[in-house]
Design a protein around this nucleic acid. Structure first.
Lengths: 229, 229
DNA sequence: TACTTGATGTGGTTGGACCACACGCCTAGA
DNA sequence: TCTAGGCGTGTGGTCCAACCACATCAAGTA
């Protein structure tokens, strides 16, 4: 057992037992090192790992915002992990897109019309109507799809959706350049978004799921994601 | 930009550009530190993060197996990340199980009967028939479900399935103690496994998906996963 | 009262030292 | 000649001591 793993176990134990909760502060690195009888280096390595996993956030200085505090950002962890493995070509982009379709279709079929997240999605759609720039449109699009996922009320699905999106964000951005006519595409996307939202509000989960699947796959097909990508 | 993040970016760049591939070896920590003009500590922190993400594996000593080599184990990264966030109670176990049902049902509906992974699943079923211990049975059960997921041919779904399983492994293990009659349950699970496999080999994806969903949900219901767990 | 200044505590970074380990060469012995 | 042992070399693993940048807070000063 390597030393930093000992520290990891200790922190995970504190989290599991509830002695350390989101918003709580970890002891200072030097104190923790002394307390666990390890070097500060090992403590820092453990903190780095948990930071990369979206569990901790280290802040310098003094005061309430400083120190190492517990946060909860599962999307960050899953996202960077997926991105790295996409980089090693061990997770094909095709599979990432396929999984995203699967998760988002399910989310659409489960989305509750009265969910606050769905209201947020509707608000985002209005913003997209009066929106000119491609960058701004895509940014709102991301948030719309994430809000859609949140409306299903499953935190794991939401986190995974977000991470999948993050993992292929650069890739999807490059694809935009392949589109023959952005304005036409944007108009079509807007209409499809409205259709999805309408299906959900009318409690037609099955149709919503199908529309979402067509929406995503249609975009990637038009932008040129080949079967061998 | 913190120093270790610089190293992370450099390594990720090497991976993306293909100059560093799975099986390849990273320069020695001391060399890399000198090359990037940072301290060895910073290099080590970056390596720790990537190790936790299942991208690198550090090995001491000398020879072909030593040094820091590139691996590809997405399941490890996603699994520990999920487990940690389950520990902070920000990912409810209920949602993890629900997501697992979703992914595994989809995998069953997509599994190709001629897939090698499916043959492996069938082989595991035979082993489970002549198996007495609870521990051994559960171990084979895990591998059966993972093989099922692999048969769908989507690496992302396989990795997520494995990580979901890993994240709640301890939890599921504790649930086993709640079962009133393990032998009866094992017999039922065996029969359900055979039914799932039969549905897949007879190209009835829809039925396979339904059987998988019933199989998993039935187990957790019997073992006592309440709606508020 | 309002501003400046220093003390204090936090993480961030560095260089150096030493350890355990595993391989492979190289020598001494059979 | 062939074999067995020892030792050099390079790897990651760990620790320490020191310094930096930063943010806050309290004491001192105009």
């Amino acid at each position: 057992m390597r030393t930093h793993q000992l520290v990891l176990q200790w922190i995970e134990g504190q989290l599991s037992s509830g002695q350390l909760a989101v918003g709580g502060r970890l002891p200072a690195e030097r104190s923790l090192a002394e307390q666990l009888q390890v070097s500060r280096t090992s403590v820092r390595e453990a903190i780095r790992v948990l930071e990369a996993m979206g569990v901790l956030r280290a802040g310098v200085g003094s005061g309430p915002d400083a120190g190492t505090v517990v946060i909860a950002d599962p999307t960050a962890a899953l996202g960077s992990a997926l991105r790295l493995h996409v980089a090693t070509s061990h997770l094909p982009v095709r599979d990432v897109v396929e999984t995203r379709v699967l998760l988002e279709s399910w989310a659409a079929s489960r989305a509750r019309p009265e969910s606050p997240a769905l209201a947020e999605a509707a608000r985002l759609l209005e913003q997209m109507d009066g929106c000119a720039g491609t960058e701004e449109f895509l940014g709102l699009d991301v948030r719309f799809h994430l809000a859609l996922a949140d409306a299903a009320g499953n935190a794991v699905v939401s986190a995974m959706m977000g991470s999948l999106r993050e993992a292929i964000q650069d890739y999807a951005g490059r694809l935009t350049g392949n589109l023959p006519d952005w304005d036409a595409t944007a108009t079509r996307l807007r209409a499809e978004h409205r259709g999805i939202l309408a299906a959900i509000t009318s409690h037609d989960g099955g149709r919503a799921a199908q529309l979402v699947a067509d929406h995503i796959e249609g975009y990637y097909a038009e932008a040129g994601l080949g079967p061998g990508a």
